[in-house]
Amino acid sequence: MTADQPLISVQEVSKSFELKRTLSERFSGLPPRAVHALNGINLDIRRGETLGLVGESGCGKSTLARCLVRLYEVDGGRVWFEGRDIAGLSGTGLRAFNRRVQMIFQDPYSSLNPRMSVAQTLAEALNVHRMVPPGRVAARIAELLELVGLPQDAAGKHPHEFSGGQRQRIGIARALSVEPEVLVADELVSALDVSVQAQVVNLLLELQEKLDLTVVFVAHDLRLVRHVSHRVAVMYLGKVVEIGPTEELFRAPRHPYTQALLKAAPSLDPSQRSRKVAARGELPSPIDLPSGCLFNSRCAHVTAHCRAEVPRLEPRRGVHQVACLIDPSDRTDPS
């Protein structure tokens, strides 16, 4: 394997969820309808980087995160991990994959077992993957608590005795207990107050450096994503509309949706006020997807072409890729 080969590669991944039919739909023999959560996702995740996945509700960012760790099976396309299709893993291969790619969830209240002490939660993970000999478990738990900045007496306590920020630290400790290479963090800090968010974000950056982690950072907060990510993928209705290095993407966004998203995010600088609405309208239904470009119903630059043709994610001037049909003169030849 070469050094510049991506650690994880997502190719044409699609995922939909079938809706329950109503009684009348069943009587009239209509086929079940489906929510199209992912509609052909392509992206690479490089070793050691933080890739930010950003977008509004319903863009598919959490579904993609779950596909990356195989919590969901993909309907179409493939997710490659070190050159192997994760759908084909089983037995020890799957076990190893599960250990090496860990997920941290948004809600530390519901993702920790309320009846288990912190020590029991961490010991379970250590024992399942036989990370340390039984005699070393207690010592390893102490190390993990120290690593995430929790006091040693936390081991004997239960989740309800902690604040939200501390609970998120427990979630991080549990994920790190099995010494993973990849952390998929789904809205890691969105349930926390802003001063506590900063503490947890600082911890994540410190741990990434210390442990050489690859991080997929899923969030709707553009400021946070910009702060932690090396590269950012912007998603809309189950597609990546733009992906590129953080600095370039935020300085010179190319896709009209990215531009609207950045403009809508309220700046802390009162002198940068705008009384113009950044994007009109609302997200179309993910059940009946629009034809052509999925953003065409809200785009200020829409043409007839946009309603007919589906734009592909292609390189533009600079290093980042954009899926948009307008202004074709911007496109560089991919060859």
């Binding site: 802003v194 946070l224 600095e247």
Partner: peptide, 18 residues
Amino acid sequence: SVPQAGTERTVLRSIEGT
């Protein structure tokens, strides 16, 4: 505590405690 442009991947001046 709020990330601002130009200070990417640096330590945020968070507030300790709750």
